[in-house]
Structure formats: C-alpha cells, structure tokens
C-alpha cells in the first residue's frame, strides 16, 4: 500500500518534470509572473534601489517582457545570479529569461543549448586602473595583478590577451562585481577587468571616480544580450520581438510619452500600426494581447529612453551611445522589420 503511494508520487513528479519543458509562455501565464535572472548588483544594469525595487538597463528588458505578457511591468520575480550560477539557473528552469549582461558566444549558443534573443548592448572588455599607477596602455601591465570575475568570457579573453602580447599577470578570482570592486579598491589587484560598460558603472559608484581611468584598449567583442533555453522557439520569438519592438520604437519615434496617443488610432505609418496592434494580428501570433508592444514600451520607454535613464550620459555611469546608436545614427542597432 505504502509502496504504491510512493510510486504514484514518483510518477507524478516525473510527469510534472516532463510538462515543465513544454510551453514556457503557458507556465509563465499560469504562474502569474515572469522569473527573470539578473545580475547580483551592477549599478545602471541591474541593482535594487533604496526601496529594494530592481532597476537598470537589463532589468528593464525583464519588465518590458512582463508588461507584454501581463500588461503589468511589475509581474516579475527577479532572481539574482552570479557569473557561475546563471546558466544552471536558466537550463534548470528556475528562470524563464536571463537578462544579465551575458556575452553571446558560439559555445553558449550551441554547446550550452541556449537561444540568444538579440543584443541589447554592444560591449568590449576593458581595464580599469588607478591613475596613480601611471599606466597608459594595457600592454604596460606586465607582471600586474588583475582582478577577474570567474566563470565569464572575460576570463578567457584576459588569458588570451596577455598570452598574445607575451606578458604575464597574476589573476585574482572574484565571484561578483561587488567583490571585485572591494578587492580593487583595497589594492589587492592593480587592475580590474570586465566589460567596459561594467567598469564605467563600477567606477561611477567609487568615492573618487576621477582617481581611476579606463585604459584605451578594448580587447574583445562582447555583444551582451538576453537569452532563453533551447527547445521552445515560441518563447524565444516572443522575447526576441519584445526586444526588437523596443529598438524599433526608438527608430520610429514611439516613446513612453506618445505611445498611448499613437496606439489610440491607426497612424499614417503602417509599421507603427503593426507594432502597436492597430493593424494586423501580431500580438495573437505571439500568443499575446494585441496591445503587447504598447504595454512593453509604456513600461520603461523605448530602447533609447531605457539607455538614457539607466546608463546614458546624464547618469553617473555616463556611457555614450557609441556602437549602441541606431543604424541611422551610425550605430549597430538594426531590427528586422515588423511585417
């Protein structure tokens, strides 16, 4: 008797495990919120504010997706992940979407079985050093001690860079950005290396940011983007087109301020109409409400607004658009058309 109960329980567990990998959108809808993996704390990209509300450039991607699904940008459960835990969290189904300045690489896409849904920040790896060190180039760092977040692609770039330039260094492995910052400020390492955007964000939180300088070398390409698990293309499509909608919205002049007005009635621009659901059935094709993009854009604004509010030139982080400008402005942002 007891044994049959045991088997029943085991069989049920097996069935629910099998069902979990089916349709992520249905699971998310049934749960009532999106589980979004974010960084453990990187100013401007993803960090809780004084009231514990998560905000940042990557966090806004999560919010836009949640808004597109539920019409509520707060229907997100943020799961902080480290460079080491993020992939396990995603492949185990603990999170539905990972928006955590993660570099799109071949092995992560193909071997680790993930789908990158696009690039939300074109970055490169840089070095941060104290001005007092008198170093002007990364090639002057022969023999230096370098703090590096373990389990990242930057770790491999660092090894390759020093090897290619025939200079040596001592790595100090740190787990999180906060730990790297603490070690760097204590002088336990001469230089701190990670994505240049992350370095700028970290430097912005220093007491005296001007005492530290970013070296001119960018030693790698780091296209950072959100990603989902392999095996559910519908879910990947949904996330990809929410991100595309944010980028297209900037290109087409849709902002959080005028989106409601533009969505009220069809405009002269058919592409705007298709995005905002006043023409065609694009929402239904994604399994969403017709006004999915309106909700996503209302949540945090278009791509440009999200950028300016979190990491733009008027924030302490002060990043220029650079490569992340629209293609019409000489940048790399170029969405496929909505048609």
């Amino acid at each position: 008797m007891k044994n049959s109960v045991l088997f029943g329980t085991l069989a049920m567990a097996g069935l629910s495990a099998a069902a979990a990998s089916a349709a992520t959108l249905d699971d998310v809808k049934a749960r009532g919120n999106l589980n979004c993996g974010v960084v453990t704390g990187l100013a401007g990209f993803g960090a809780p504010d004084a009231n514990g509300v998560w905000e940042g450039f990557d966090v806004d991607v999560c919010r836009a997706v949640a808004a597109a699904i539920f019409g509520d940008e707060n229907a997100v459960e943020f799961v902080p992940t480290t460079g080491e835990t993020r992939f396990t969290a995603l492949s185990s189904g603990e999170i539905d979407l990972l928006a955590r300045n993660t570099t799109w690489t071949f092995s992560r896409d193909v071997e680790l079985k993930f789908d990158f849904i696009g690039v939300n920040y074109y970055d490169g790896q840089g070095f941060l050093v104290p001005t007092a060190l008198g170093v002007t180039s990364a090639k002057d760092l022969d023999g230096a001690t370098v703090c590096i977040q373990t389990g990242t692609s930057t770790e491999l770039n660092l090894a390759d860079f020093f090897r290619a330039n025939n200079i040596t260094y001592q790595p100090v492995a740190v787990q999180t950005n906060a730990e790297g910052q603490q070690q760097y400020l204590a002088g336990a390492c001469d230089a701190y290396t990670t994505d240049a955007s992350g370095l700028a964000a970290t430097r912005a939180t220093f007491e005296a940011p001007d005492d530290h300088v970013l070296l001119p070398e960018i030693i790698s390409k780091e296209p950072l983007g959100p990603l989902v698990r392999h095996g559910d293309s519908d879910w990947a499509d949904l996330n990809r087109w929410v991100l595309n909608a944010l980028i297209a919205a900037e290109e087409l002049g849709i902002t959080s301020a005028n989106v409601a007005e533009m969505a009220a009635a069809p405009t002269n621009n058919p592409e705007v109409n298709r995005i905002l659901g006043t023409e065609g059935e694009y929402g239904a094709m994604l399994g969403l409400e017709p006004n999915w993009a309106v909700a996503a854009i209302s949540a945090g604004g278009n791509y440009g607004e999200i950028f300016e509010r979190n990491i733009g030139e008027n924030t302490p982080i002060g990043l220029a658009r650079g490569l992340n400008a629209q293609w019409t402005d000489g940048g790399l942002l170029y969405t496929p058309p909505f048609r």
């Binding site: 080491e84 092995s107 680790l112 389990g151 990242t152």
Partner: peptide
Amino acid sequence: ADVRATLGGISLNQTG
C-alpha cells in the same frame, strides 16, 4: 584555486 574552484567552478562554467 582548489578543485571545487577549477573543475567545479571555472571549467564547469566554461564548458557547461
């Protein structure tokens, strides 16, 4: 860099 950090940390992460 103990075995948990190399094999169970960085290698695990880089290879998945």
